[in-house]
Design a binder for these strands. Structure first.
Lengths: 195, 195
DNA sequence: GCACATATTGCGTGTGACGCAATTTCAGGT
DNA sequence: ACCTGAAATTGCGTCACACGCAATATGTGC
């Protein structure tokens, strides 16, 4: 990775981090008070530069979650070859989402702010493409002819989202890993049907 | 339903219909050319009134799909009591989404326009809440303690979305019902695990 | 230390979303 | 048929945002 590219990444993360931090400070109800100028200032860049990286506050705020989702496919590919699909997916997701344990405030901000709903869904759905490819590769199914990889990927993304929502509920002090495992086992078969 | 409420509904649908029609005319690449004024004029209302019903063009365009999703729960509840979960869900979804056969242009516009992605995901996810409740009612599971209803609902919504994307691919002239059936059978168990 | 690609920035413009208050519309009762 | 009041429509003003463009600053690689 180029040095220049790494600098861009640093700037990107600075903006994203500032945006999420400011959003958390104001809480879900006061998201409108988080102005573009504030985000840019907090990140140490000009408003115009902020806009070179993100085309909306929502995108900046949810960027972290989106990045996380993008890694799900690669996490599944890192699992050993012989492992059954369900075990591999569960292990990959838990590994990715509990190291470290997610930031309750950040996840809560993203998932329980109406104005962020669309962007949050986009963030979680970012996992689907790469994950579907990884599932296809693992099961040897052609994703162009069989819907199984894409449908399963969507189900996994949905399960992660539901698990997050449940974990955020007050009075839920258990580890996220347990919730994730429970959610994922509802929908992931050990192998494609009939095989 | 009140007469006044019905009039509001008529206006709402006029705006939504106009928005989708204009968007289709310009195609996914020219969505920026669909101005608020155009939508309002085409619907026969003032721009301000358009904004009383929808707070963004995207929302107006995807409103039809959102309404459709909201009906999934009720469609499942309409299935006979004894029917196994998987059959009931599949029958309910197919009934709802193939009568009539979806408008290819409209669905394509909504699902393959990047600017509409967030709103489209919101539209499909509208099904999840009511559907989860219907699943909970049918299976007798307490949705507050067990994640199965919510996870399954999310998986169903995801499967419908994936099926739609697949059905839109050129060279796919088969009935939508078949695609839906295939997608749904990937993830819906006949009953919650272990029961 | 230089040169060039690339990122950053400032400015200007067009558009959208929405609060507010005036006005129109119309359902329901007399 | 008319009145009345609630509710919907509308116009206006405001504010913030996204983005194109061109100038400038930055720093990497030689």
């Amino acid at each position: 990775m180029d040095l220049r590219a790494r600098n861009k990444q640093v700037t990107r993360e600075a903006i994203s981090h500032a945006a999420l931090r400011l959003a958390i400070e104001q809480g879900p109800s006061g998201l409108a008070l988080v102005r573009v100028t504030d985000i840019a200032t907090a990140a140490g860049v000009s408003p115009r530069t902020y806009n070179n990286y993100f085309s909306s506050r929502e995108e900046a705020i949810c960027s972290f979650q989106a990045d996380q989702s993008r890694r799900v496919g690669q996490a599944l590919r890192a699992r050993p070859d012989g492992e059954p699909l369900d075990r591999a997916v569960i292990a990959a997701v838990i590994e990715l989402y509990t190291d470290p344990e997610p930031d309750r405030a950040g996840l809560g901000m993203i998932m329980s702010t109406p104005e962020l709903e669309g962007e949050a869904l986009k963030a979680f759905s970012m996992a689907e493409g790469p994950l579907a490819e990884a599932i296809a590769a693992r099961t040897g199914i052609d994703p162009g002819r069989d819907l199984f990889p894409a449908v399963t990927a969507a189900a996994v993304a949905g399960a992660i989202r539901v698990a997050g929502r449940y974990w955020l509920q007050p009075g839920n002090s258990g580890p996220f890993a347990d919730v994730l495992r429970g959610a994922l086992s509802c929908v992931i078969p050990a192998a494609p049907r009939g095989q």
